[in-house]
């Protein structure tokens, strides 16, 4: 039994716990753990080769890491940093998304043009779905019924029915789609296109384009504005989009689809994670090897944190005693 659970059982007061942002360092084969209070790296954990995608189980009990060049999705105990086991991920996993059931992991196998669906509990491959070339962005709708894979060279979003694990629609997007995220309770799908320089918003019910968001920054050539990872503020009203070699994060009004701000960050910004209360955004800056902390309200960068080489993915470690993780703990305590 883990210490936290024990402390709950005994009814002792929990110490105030700072949250942690976990960052994968693509060419260092490590994870840097950032403390959201001190804004410092407090741990560095070795991983498999070329770690990229990273996500936690909803209850925070394990963290999943795409170790691309080890051809493995690694399952790590976040407390000890030990690799518990590997999942049968298929070759060259780059990105993945965990379904709301916490059980099905949708993995993009970049070199094989395949999406692999893995049951993380019994560690078996549930399905392998042929998708376009270089699958990358992965998302699962909040109701768990639709999974999305974007393919970078085929330039499509593939819509997967998670019931049958088959594709039910393919929509062309602009060149080199990277990230996909559901928004507004799963009624919208947003897809970024790195080389196209756009973010496309789809109506999920009809799989048709609802809006296309373009970017323009004075002094930056349009070719270098390359939308990649993005995320939404806690209230869902603002989307923050990493613009790669433009070295900026765009703040977009999610209602009007207008770009409201550009926030200067480090070089070649890839992905981001939010602090538990959503007040801070942590961006991974691949070329400069650091993480920029943005104050979400003022939309100003407030600190740069040196991490490993080529930081790529970022994930918030679920805070024990908050949100979904508390529910999980209570649910596991029938006598409580």
């Amino acid at each position: 039994m883990r210490p936290l659970l024990l402390s709950l059982l005994l009814g002792t007061a929990l110490p105030v716990q700072a949250a942690e942002i976990w960052v994968t360092n693509e060419t260092d084969d490590t994870i840097s753990v950032i403390d959201t209070d001190s804004l410092e790296v407090i741990r560095t954990i070795p991983t498999g080769e070329r770690p990229r995608g990273i996500t936690f189980a909803q209850d925070g009990s394990v963290v999943y890491i795409c170790a691309s060049d080890s051809d493995a999705v690694q399952v790590m105990d976040p407390d000890s940093g030990k690799i518990l086991h590997n999942l049968p991920s298929g070759e060259d996993p780059e990105q993945f998304a965990l379904a709301p059931d916490g059980r099905h992991l949708y993995i993009a196998n970049e070199n094989d043009a395949i999406t692999t669906v893995v049951d993380v509990d019994n560690r078996t491959v549930v399905a392998q779905i042929d998708v376009g070339i270089e699958p990358e962005g992965m998302a699962v709708s909040p109701d768990g019924r639709i999974a999305i894979t974007t393919s970078e060279t085929t330039n499509m979003a593939h819509w997967i029915d998670t019931g049958s694990q088959t594709i039910f629609a393919n929509t062309l997007v602009d060149p080199r789609p990277r990230d996909a995220e559901f928004a507004k309770d799963g009624t919208e799908l947003w897809v970024s296109a790195e080389i196209g320089g756009t973010v496309t918003v789809f109506d999920v019910a009809t799989q048709t384009q609802k809006a296309k968001i373009r970017f323009s920054i004075q002094g930056v050539h349009p070719d270098l504005i390359q939308p990649v990872g993005f995320g939404f503020s806690a209230d869902g009203k603002t989307a923050f989009v990493a613009l790669g070699p433009a070295n900026r994060v765009a703040a977009i009004n999610a209602e009007t689809y207008e770009v409201e701000d550009y926030i200067l960050v480090g070089r070649r910004v890839w992905h981001m994670a939010f602090s538990p209360d959503g007040t801070q955004i942590f961006t991974t800056n691949g070329v400069s090897g650091d993480v920029t902390v943005i104050d979400a309200a003022s939309r100003e960068p407030i600190k740069t944190i040196k991490v490993g080489r080529f930081p790529w993915g970022a994930a918030l470690r679920p805070v024990p005693g908050a949100g979904g993780s508390r529910n999980m703990i209570q649910a596991s305590l029938p006598a409580n």
């Binding site: 376009g132 060279t153 085929t154 499509m156 062309l172």
Partner: peptide
Amino acid sequence: ADNMTTGRFL
């Protein structure tokens, strides 16, 4: 081959 992969969806 790359074109074929895309083409099969179209």
